[in-house]
Design a protein around this nucleic acid. Structure first.
Lengths: 240, 240
DNA sequence: CGGACAGTTGATTCATGTCAAATCACGTGG
DNA sequence: CCACGTGATTTGACATGAATCAACTGTCCG
């Protein structure tokens, strides 16, 4: 690799949209340069599988753009979505053998991919990276545990209300000047089946609950892949 | 603190039963000495609350002995157990503000407690500790995600079968020469209500499933707090 | 012996799953 | 531009597993 291409790659990393939220945030530019040379970007199309459950997982990755799902399947083929991954989230299982879940892109996405062995070595040598990874992992564990309360103890209505509010929080974290966003409309990167797999329900139950919320004026569904939250208060009421 | 008491404490750490499985495993004796001076042991009685959900959590801890549960409550007071903690597991939320779950001892237990601020600082300065903590957290995240499949997609029968097998694995990880253990008997540190909270069921459903397994000859219940696994194969059949 | 509490069992209800049919949305080819 | 086909979603009818409510039983401990 010559100096010019190395430099270009450094610039690439430094221009990265998630540069200061992802696990790379605390690295200095020399470290970024090294990391940059180890990884490569990969573009995924909506619906494309990125990792397979139980595979000898040779890679880990950072999400740069888009949304992905992590999931497991039961023996009889039903699916449970274990979590979602958004930009700056980390994918894969460092310091381990096989990825214990499948990963599929829900939208078109961009990920920053590393060979696991390279990444493991780099992480052990650069404790600032490892520290960030630890913080991300702890946050994800907290989020996952909160989801267990939903799966184990909530009714279908509570599950859907909670899901819509949580999704809104993660999709529109900052005040947004886009009128669509202000009116509470968001694009849903999920099919009804995927919502069902996320909430531990069936597709019919999800559909009925959406209809109920629409009839009660809590939400509107301009199209199948869009949802507008009309009455956040009422949704919060029903979420617990 | 004088030299003699410091030395006694070092010996205390070095004799620790979980010394080589917990996050302290890779520390050298100088580091252990430092850590030892920061922490203190605390004995908990079965049923005693150690951390409260949502509390400004001032502490983190290692489990030395016993079993504890982590749990959340819904607004209407129902409980969901988020996970169990066994010897060498880590408790609390480093690098964060509040513990997002309650922790209660299920059996008499011993924990090794640290002020969170002290621990955070020590961890950042000693990357071998931080690395171990990361590995533990990643493992716990995997385990938690597997439990989501159970909560979201399994029937009551599958849940109970899975639970009994998992418990057996965690309580009897090594080949055991104790005849009770060989015959598959284990002490259950849970009330029926706690099993229900763990599996996202009600106490009555748990009771009925246990009765069914007993009638079918898969298990025996010598007493309320003991279960003998008679037919592991059949349980595995029913667990998925 | 009696009281208290945990667990079991039974009867019934209800939420959600299942199965089936109707409808909608969208892309394709004529 | 429209008819058609396909797959996703919605809706309806019905079945069922688990929750709920209530009574009963066992066990522990004073």
């Amino acid at each position: 690799m010559n100096a010019r291409s190395a430099e270009l790659q450094v610039n690439f990393c430094q221009a990265c949209a998630i540069r200061n939220r992802s696990i790379c945030a605390d690295l200095d530019s020399a470290e970024i340069g090294l990391l940059n040379r180890m990884g490569r970007r990969r573009r995924l199309e909506a619906g494309e599988q990125f990792l397979w459950e139980g595979d000898e997982a040779p890679v880990v990755a950072n999400v740069v753009e888009g949304m992905l799902k992590l999931s497991n399947q039961t023996a009889d083929g039903r699916e449970q979505i274990l979590g979602l991954a958004f930009p700056s989230d980390f994918l894969g299982r460092p310091f381990g053998q096989s990825t214990p879940y499948g990963v599929e892109a829900l939208t078109d996405a961009v990920v920053c991919v590393f060979q696991r062995t390279d990444f493991d070595r780099f992480a052990r040598e650069h404790s600032r990276l490892e520290h960030k990874l630890l913080e991300h992992t702890l946050t994800e564990l907290d989020r996952t545990r909160r989801w267990m309360l939903l799966l184990g103890r909530m009714s279908a209505e509570q599950k859907l209300a909670t899901f819509l509010l949580e999704l809104w929080n993660r999709l529109a974290p900052e005040e947004d000047s886009d009128p669509a966003a202000r009116s509470g409309t968001m694009e849903l990167p999920f099919s009804r089946q995927q919502i069902a797999d996320l909430l531990g329900l069936t597709i019919e139950t999800v559909s009925r609950q959406i209809t109920k919320f629409r009839r009660d004026g809590l939400i509107d569904t301009p199209s199948r892949r869009e949802i507008a939250i009309l009455d956040r208060e009422a949704l919060m009421q029903r979420s617990c």
